[in-house]
């Protein structure tokens, strides 16, 4: 059994009266790619946001590299963990809406966090950012502002920006959902490469092909719980649960 990178135990999260996560357990090994599927409102995005404590869970434990990251004063404030720095510097996140900093150039978007958070020397940060942007195929866009870029390019910048912090785990929250169809592939290709290099990834997606091809594990969520999980071929081609079958039927109909 591979070394555990991330372990979720009985995670609960509610917003007011709405219980979005109702006891989620998940084990992610180092280097594993886990794809999370499910209808909207099933809690998949919230699950990702719990992992990097953007939404600290109210109940349950999350272990990152064996360390319990849910300990801390008060909950529901977004600041409830003692381990915020540990978590945020080890877990990178890419968002559906990219969330690039519009007042900064592409290069500055990538250098900002290492420079301001890790206090690394400027030259070192810049060299690394340039290399990362080259890796995602954007070395000719360094001094552009994000609004000049296509959605696919923006999303690749966002991936490079997260990688600049040397994360151990990458979270992808429906990163291709806001893209025009012809731009989806370039982003997925970048993610494929990342997976091939052994990055641990937790990917919320509607891209079935990607899940099948890249995922080591597929998780189907509905109603705040994991309904079914397992190898992609099992879950996607031979689902056991009615809810999974129904969802896959609806998705594949498109």
């Amino acid at each position: 059994m591979a070394e555990s990178m991330l372990k979720l135990e009985d995670i609960h999260k509610r917003f007011g009266d709405l219980e979005v996560l109702r006891g989620v357990n998940l084990d992610v090994a180092k280097g594993e790619v886990v794809c999370v599927l499910g209808p909207s409102g099933s809690g998949k995005s919230t699950l990702l946001r719990c992992v990097n404590l953007l939404e600290p869970p109210e109940q349950g434990e999350i272990f990152l590299e064996g360390r319990d990251i849910c300990k801390g004063p008060g909950s529901g404030t977004g600041e409830s963990s003692w381990e915020l720095d540990f978590v945020r510097q080890r877990v990178g996140m890419v968002f559906q809406q990219f969330n690039l900093f519009p007042h900064k150039t592409v290069l500055e978007n990538v250098t900002m966090a290492p420079e301001k958070v890790l206090d690394k020397p400027r030259a070192e940060v810049k060299a690394k950012a340039t290399a990362l942007l080259e890796r995602v195929g954007l070395s000719d866009k360094l001094s552009q502002y994000p609004e000049r870029l296509s959605g696919g390019q923006q999303q690749r910048v966002a991936i490079a920006r997260a990688l600049a912090m040397d994360p151990q785990v990458m979270l992808f929250d429906e990163v291709t959902s806001a893209l025009d169809p012809e731009l989806v592939k370039e982003v997925l290709d970048t993610m494929r490469e990342l997976a091939a290099e052994g990055m641990t990834m937790l990917v919320v997606t509607h891209e079935m092909e990607f899940a099948k091809e890249v995922g080591d594990q597929v998780v189907f969520m509905d109603g705040g719980v994991i309904v079914e999980q397992g190898r992609p071929i099992d879950v996607l081609d031979n689902p056991c649960e009615e809810r999974t079958k129904k969802f896959l039927g609806l998705v594949l109909e498109r």
């Binding site: 953007l54 945020r88 900093f101 301001k116």
Partner: peptide, 10 residues
């Protein structure tokens, strides 16, 4: 924007 900044460790 705040979420992106926080997720980067700021």
């Amino acid at each position: 924007q705040m979420e992106a900044a926080r997720s980067l460790g700021m």
